[in-house]
Amino acid sequence: MTDRQPPVLAVTLGDPAGIGPEITARTLADPASASIARGLAVGDAAVLRRAVGVCGLNVRVNAVGSPGEARFEPGTIDVLDLGIAPDDLEWGKVSPVAGRSAVAAIETATRIALDGEVDGIVTSPINKEAIWAAGSEHLGHTEMLGELTGAAHFDTMFVVRGLKIFFTTRHVALRKALDQLTEERVSASIRHAITALRVFGDDEPRLAVAAVNPHGGENGHFGDEEITVLRPAVERAVAEGLGAVGPIPADSVFHQGLEGRFDGVLSHFHDQGHIPAKTVDFDGTVSVTVGLPILRTSVDHGTAFDIAGTGQASHGTMAAAFGVAADFSRFTGRIRDAYGTGAAK
């Protein structure tokens, strides 16, 4: 890719029976998206044409066999056609065929990103049951991308109104998440978060570490994790020359971050980071996978099988993910330098 042209972003259709094709079609047909990046859909042309019809869009679908064949013309959506899923899949139903299409789209988008044919990928939601029915053993999108790129470690970073939010733990029960909070784990999470902040444009990053107990534990009266785990981890980071502060009570740290006092916040369990981000801007909260040698952003919602095929799905989250990817594409060099070149498997 050259600096003289807008970036090229591969946008996967996700599960063909879900809302992914619809929100992809709406996003790539939107002149606002076309003004910031060139979008190349990755999936089945038949599925995308069906989504265009459902959404009532006045655009044509141009099926291509490689990124180099894409035209990026107004009124046209280019799609790297996989030829797997037909246009008569039942909406909102788990299907092995849909699962195969979703997996193939991820694999293809990852390959062309590793090969430098696109500047990043934006992913639509997949259905875990469908990909398992298709034979995949991955727990989800991110794990699949980690294996495909050979990434040694990867994390989720939320971006909402300029603030970046990180997670020490995520998809585990709350009781288990608290048990997993050790000084070593929090220290590693601080280091990973600050590396990501640097990669994505904050040259002198300021990371706030959230507390887990009410009022930061009130010196141990409401819990001692701040004293025994979080504060020592922050002190270790400061001794290493890292710009970490905290622990700061969770009922105020996100507000302070949104005001610009910090570049990022390290939260410690799933909902601690999700709730403030999505309350502030549900559609504008974008998930970025950090640690991969390629740029990947994603919507942070599911396949919405209940409304798939109705044309009602809002593409706000996909448009936001596309916009963040367009912006962050300027950091592809930093991404490669920090996280390696990757190797398709």
Rank of each mutant, 00 (worst) to 15 (best):
126 I>S: 07
153 H>M: 07
266 L>A: 10
98 A>F: 06
252 S>V: 15
255 H>I: 14
214 P>I: 09
232 P>C: 12
209 V>H: 15
167 F>N: 00
49 R>L: 05
28 L>V: 12
169 T>I: 08
343 A>W: 05
274 H>A: 01
63 A>S: 12
291 G>Q: 02
114 L>K: 13
32 A>W: 05
63 A>H: 01
210 A>R: 02
64 V>N: 00
257 G>I: 03
202 D>T: 05
260 G>N: 14
194 I>H: 09
47 V>M: 10
69 E>L: 13
252 S>R: 07
112 I>D: 10
30 D>I: 14
79 V>T: 07
276 P>H: 13
220 G>M: 05
43 G>C: 07
233 A>F: 07
221 H>L: 06
10 A>N: 05
320 A>T: 06
128 K>F: 00
119 D>V: 05
82 L>I: 02
46 A>S: 09
268 H>M: 15
318 M>E: 10
60 R>Q: 12
46 A>W: 01
203 D>M: 13
301 H>W: 07
142 T>N: 08
187 S>E: 04
139 L>I: 08
24 T>E: 04
66 S>I: 13
339 Y>I: 02
193 A>Y: 03
71 R>Y: 01
238 V>D: 08
45 A>L: 09
225 E>M: 04
289 T>D: 08
95 S>R: 06
283 D>L: 02
178 L>F: 15
40 L>V: 09
142 T>Q: 10
49 R>T: 13
304 A>Y: 04
242 L>Y: 03
321 A>E: 05
7 P>D: 00
194 I>A: 09
307 I>A: 06
38 R>G: 07
127 N>A: 15
155 D>T: 11
251 D>R: 07
87 D>G: 12
177 A>L: 06
280 V>Y: 13
332 T>D: 02
251 D>Y: 04
217 G>P: 03
